[in-house]
Amino acid sequence: MVGKGIIVDRELSKSTHKGQNSILLIEKIIRERIFDSLYWKQYCFNVNAALILDRCVEIRCVGGLETSGKPMGFICLLVKLIQLMPQREIIEFYLNQGKFKYLKVLAMVFIRLVYRDGGLLKKQLNDYRKVRLYEHGEYKLSYVDEIADKLLNDEMFIGLNLPYMKTNGDDESDDESDGSDEDDSDSD
């Protein structure tokens, strides 16, 4: 949207990262496609981090925009989560639950984009469950660990630019996530 030379970004997130609104992690072209899509208007309106689960458990494919430019459910829900910016313990609950693998992948991509936590992603390298992946205009078979690997090493994933992430050599030094696990058990 361009009005009087000012570029207006719609549907901003509640959170910012280094002074930039988190929704801007997603390229504008993709964002605009999503905000204009039926899926977004139908399912991503008036939802919170609990209600959005209804849709997250329905996904059957990991993907961004189709070649026609139509956004898939996966990326719509990802952008909605970035907009909602739930507490970290909620995202980690998505990640660690066992029943819905696409919900887990959603959390993984979120973690890669927003928290940029490589240690947390490395922990997912032992999940060999099959997932359907749509990339470069075609569907293919992939695995949760393969996607974790892509997120750790590639510069792009399903058409999204992955921001710079420190790659820490030692795997065992992620004390932060251990601490948050303990927090979870306290709150129960």
Binding site: N46, A49, A50, P86, Q97, D184
Partner: peptide, 15 residues
């Protein structure tokens, strides 16, 4: 006025 802010317990319940 749909509730936007939810807690982990809300999420677990829905799950």
């Amino acid at each position: 006025n749909q509730q936007i802010e939810v807690t982990l317990d809300d999420v677990k319940q829905r799950y």
